[in-house]
Design a protein around this nucleic acid. Structure first.
Lengths: 189, 189
DNA sequence: TAATTCTACCTAGGGGTCCTAGTCAACCGT
DNA sequence: ACGGTTGACTAGGACCCCTAGGTAGAATTA
């Protein structure tokens, strides 16, 4: 009986890959076990439950997303920062659909989540520094940006933009234009 | 053996209620069968598969959503129409989380879907008539609106706006302000 | 090196889900 | 009243989650 060399990290990484190829909803203990050519029961020595496996994927994905967005953001400001942030966000979501889907699951306020989601919010606020908003406008703007990016990416991936001849890319650029314009002339009433 | 009086419509309606109370991901043949005090196998005389059941819920929900949004929109124009549309949309999503979640599932271009989603898009375009956009700006604006509403509602329901003291309602109104402003001064470059 | 402990993986099994096939009883039109 | 249709049943296969207990190889210690 050769050992497969399972560790929580490797199991979660494999599950994340599986999510991207087969969909997050198809991430199961059995499916991941098959990847390692191991019985599903064997995974329970490393990961307590399916829920923990999926939460692990979510935490991993949030961290990756924050990394990539952070890297894209480095050294930019104002409109440049907005566009870089948005494009990095969308690129990650489209390249890693399963990982991105995992970030939607409501994970209990775990420590790992706190850090990654916190970084995310901090970066969004960093963008807004170029637009000189004060509270509570800044919070409203953060939520508007996040909503728009999240919604766009989900609809795009779900095929919601397939009708018509206008490309999703063009509409995306247009949306960024609109957001930049709104942020530049924030109606603070 | 008394008959339970199952029909596709009643089964789908029950499934939709179950989605709202227990979550769309928990809509299963077994769970719906339990509601009718019937064995799960009995449902297959009326509904071919779990996928068909869920698609049915999605079609029902899309139709309901279109109805409510359409009713809210009646007789309004311009900013009024935008706000009415948006609030009806959000209200439906928050009051019927499971039904709303069902509308996210990618249903094959079924006939039923065509009609409801088509109505939805037509109504969004009706709003924009007050802003005098021409193609392709109108398509971009439709997508921006839909993305923002969809993203906001999902994040709100997922607890994404729990941090901080700013209420979701206030941020929502602020987002509508911003959208109205952007639509009024659409940067057509 | 040899003995002991540890642990990564195993088998066995209970309970849940989707779905098919085949059966029988209740309803309905004639 | 009767024959056909159909609505719900039981039985069962395939797959899933998860627990309990066993075993063999790795790690630690004597």
């Amino acid at each position: 009986m050769a050992r497969a060399g399972l560790t929580p990290a490797r199991i979660i990484a494999a599950a994340a890959d599986l999510a991207d190829t087969d969909g997050f909803e198809n991430v199961s203990m059995s499916a991941v076990a098959r990847l390692f050519e191991v019985k599903d029961a064997s995974l329970y020595a490393h990961i307590r439950s399916l829920h923990e496996l999926r939460s692990g994927v979510a935490a991993l994905s949030l961290a990756e997303l924050a990394d990539q967005v952070g890297a894209a953001l480095a050294g930019r400001a104002g409109r440049d920062a907005l566009v870089a942030f948005a494009n990095a966000y969308r690129t990650y979501a489209l390249n890693h659909p399963g990982r991105y889907a995992s970030t939607q699951m409501s994970l209990e306020p775990a420590v790992a989540e706190q850090s990654a989601a916190g970084r995310h919010a901090a970066m969004t606020r960093a963008i807004l520094r170029g637009y000189a908003l004060s509270e509570p406008d800044e919070t409203d703007a953060v939520r508007l940006l996040h909503s728009t990016f999240h919604g766009f990416v989900l609809l795009e991936r779900g095929g919601g933009f397939s009708r018509g001849t206008r490309s999703a890319n063009a509409s995306w650029d247009s949306a960024l234009n609109a957001l930049h314009f709104t942020l530049s002339h924030w109606p603070s009433s």
